[in-house]
């Protein structure tokens, strides 16, 4: 499963990457410490090599998670169904959870740190989907 990890906090990125690897979640993990870089790469990859899963941090300088999602709006039709975005944030604010529901591209919101159960839950969703297809 091709995965993007977007977070300016390098400690958090390293941690999430190791946890995903430990669960055998993904064979290719691309990490980005800037949402702008990730956006550029995603637009390039969207036709042939779009990631199936994106873990997106919210609190980032220059371009935050919400701005990233807004910038993706023009490509929503092409990405919907192929690319699943999970917000991964240290914030516990309910307002963020509410806001995340207004984006169709967002499949879920996970509080940091991501744990084994959450990783497995996402995995199983993709297995079901793969089986259904």
């Amino acid at each position: 499963m091709k995965t993007y990890l977007i977070d300016d906090d390098t400690l958090s990125t390293y941690l999430t990457e190791q946890l995903l690897r430990a669960e055998g979640f993904s064979n290719t993990i691309n990490t980005f410490d800037s949402a702008q870089q990730a956006l550029q790469q995603l637009v390039e990859d969207k036709d042939k090599a779009a990631p199936q899963v994106v873990f997106l941090d919210l609190n980032m300088p220059a371009m935050n998670g919400w701005e990233f999602l807004d910038a993706l709006a023009p490509y929503e039709g092409e990405l919907l169904g192929h690319c699943h975005i999970y917000i991964l944030t240290s914030s516990l604010a309910l307002a963020d959870l509410e806001k995340s529901k207004s984006y169709d591209l967002v499949s879920g919101l996970i509080h940091k740190p991501i744990d084994t159960e959450e990783i497995r839950a996402i995995q199983s969703q993709f297995e079901e989907k793969g089986a259904a297809e």
Partner: peptide, 25 residues
């Protein structure tokens, strides 16, 4: 309050995650 809770929780979340990871590698 919002900012502090976020900035307090970010390193805390990382610490929790690493403590978990350390037990598994």
């Amino acid at each position: 309050t919002y900012i502090v809770s976020h900035n307090l929780r970010a390193p805390l979340a990382n610490a929790l995650g690493y403590a978990d990871l350390l037990s598994r590698v």
